[in-house]
Design a protein around this nucleic acid. Sequence first.
DNA 1: GCCAACGTTGGC
DNA 2: GCCAACGTTGGC
Length: 158
Amino acid sequence: MEQFFILKSEPKSFSWDDLKKAPGKKTNWDGVRNYQARNYLRSMQKGDKCLFYHSSTKEPAIVGIVEVSRTAFPDPTAFDPESMYYDPQSASGKVRWYAVEVRFYGEFEKPILRSELKQYAELSKTELLRRGSRLSVIPLRASEFQFICSLRKIIYEK
DNA sequence: GCCAACGTTGGC
DNA sequence: GCCAACGTTGGC
């Protein structure tokens, strides 16, 4: 069954525009260093849809949709001493952290601001909107995903 | 810049 | 195994 998630990113480290400019409009979703978020990454199946959310910015917002194009694999950045996500405890070759690959799926005609999202009773149980919610990979109910998608025209590209 | 909420660490 | 201290996240 198709699953849905929210992926958080700070635009100053990796933005929606960065994704659109990337070769093949795809990227490794790596650097996740939280066990719960990692477990969600590992549960992702090819074709699962993720809303792309800009956090820690003036106007936090959902900006687009990506789909999982490769299921979980050991996160290369954990083994790379040059990477800011390097994990010394993974150096032995033990796999602690995983990444998935995601690719562009659709873009909302206008960003859906967090302040707007909070107004809808349909999203009152959405983990993203809970105060203190810090997970960078957040599961989303199908009904919530569909509701959010109904809020904007979606621009698909071939 | 503030601070609430959370995860992690480490002493015991 | 408990829990206080600490660091980080991220909205506001």
